[in-house]
Simulated assay, not measured.
Amino acid sequence: MSFNNPSREEIKSILEKAANIAVVGLSDNPDRTSHMVSQAMQKRGYRIIPVNPNADQILGEKCYASLSDIPEPVDIVNVFRRSEHTVPVAREAVSIGAKVFWLQLGIINEEAAQIAREGGLEVIMDRCIKVEDSILRPNR
């Protein structure tokens, strides 16, 4: 079965319900896309939880080495890793009980999507969360 992202209305609903976004691969370098996107989402009111084993703090938030180290519920796991590195992230997203597995623009992995879907997560691939939030929730 080929993968299809949720409809725009479903994505809007996902974003409206989300509070905590764990960002896997969030860079502490302000020139990196992951940093810019996460900072914009933080300014739009989302709680960003950095997942980066090489930093202590990013965007004023404590960093965690892995999703499993996060001591609170996660609504969306937003992934800034190359496609070939997303399968273990999908498994970990399932194991922590996240609600959504979101692969950023340009990131597609059918196996990771299947793991996440079978684990009960909504899956979005090859879409920028910042762009979607800006389009679907312009007044936030």
Rank of each mutant, 00 (worst) to 15 (best):
19 A>Y: 15
86 T>L: 05
98 A>W: 06
102 W>V: 04
70 I>V: 15
126 D>P: 03
17 K>N: 15
136 L>A: 00
26 L>K: 03
7 S>R: 04
96 I>W: 06
54 N>T: 11
70 I>C: 11
79 V>C: 08
103 L>A: 00
80 F>K: 01
115 I>L: 13
24 V>M: 05
134 S>T: 15
38 S>M: 03
35 H>L: 08
47 R>V: 15
50 P>Y: 05
69 D>W: 12
65 A>E: 12
125 M>V: 07
6 P>I: 03
82 R>V: 03
22 A>Q: 10
45 G>N: 11
41 M>P: 00
47 R>D: 14
29 N>Y: 00
22 A>L: 03
102 W>S: 10
69 D>K: 13
106 G>F: 10
72 E>M: 11
60 G>C: 00
78 N>A: 03
125 M>F: 06
126 D>N: 14
2 S>L: 12
92 E>C: 02
22 A>F: 14
105 L>N: 11
66 S>R: 06
23 V>A: 07
16 E>C: 15
37 V>G: 01
92 E>W: 06
101 F>M: 12
96 I>D: 08
110 E>Q: 12
87 V>G: 11
25 G>T: 07
20 N>P: 13
78 N>W: 01
70 I>F: 13
90 A>D: 02
58 I>C: 09
77 V>E: 09
50 P>L: 00
63 C>L: 04
125 M>Y: 00
43 K>D: 14
116 A>S: 06
135 I>E: 05
85 H>L: 14
28 D>K: 09
129 I>G: 09
7 S>F: 08
27 S>P: 02
22 A>S: 13
107 I>M: 02
42 Q>S: 11
54 N>A: 12
115 I>D: 02
138 P>V: 09
59 L>N: 04
50 P>N: 01
66 S>T: 10
105 L>F: 14
111 E>A: 11
31 D>I: 03
112 A>T: 07
17 K>H: 11
41 M>K: 08
139 N>H: 15
53 P>Q: 04
57 Q>N: 13
127 R>F: 13
78 N>D: 15
39 Q>P: 05
57 Q>D: 12
92 E>R: 06
27 S>D: 01
122 E>V: 15
134 S>C: 05
28 D>H: 11
45 G>H: 07
90 A>N: 08
17 K>R: 13
96 I>S: 08
103 L>R: 00
1 M>I: 03
40 A>T: 14
58 I>H: 01
131 V>L: 07
18 A>V: 01
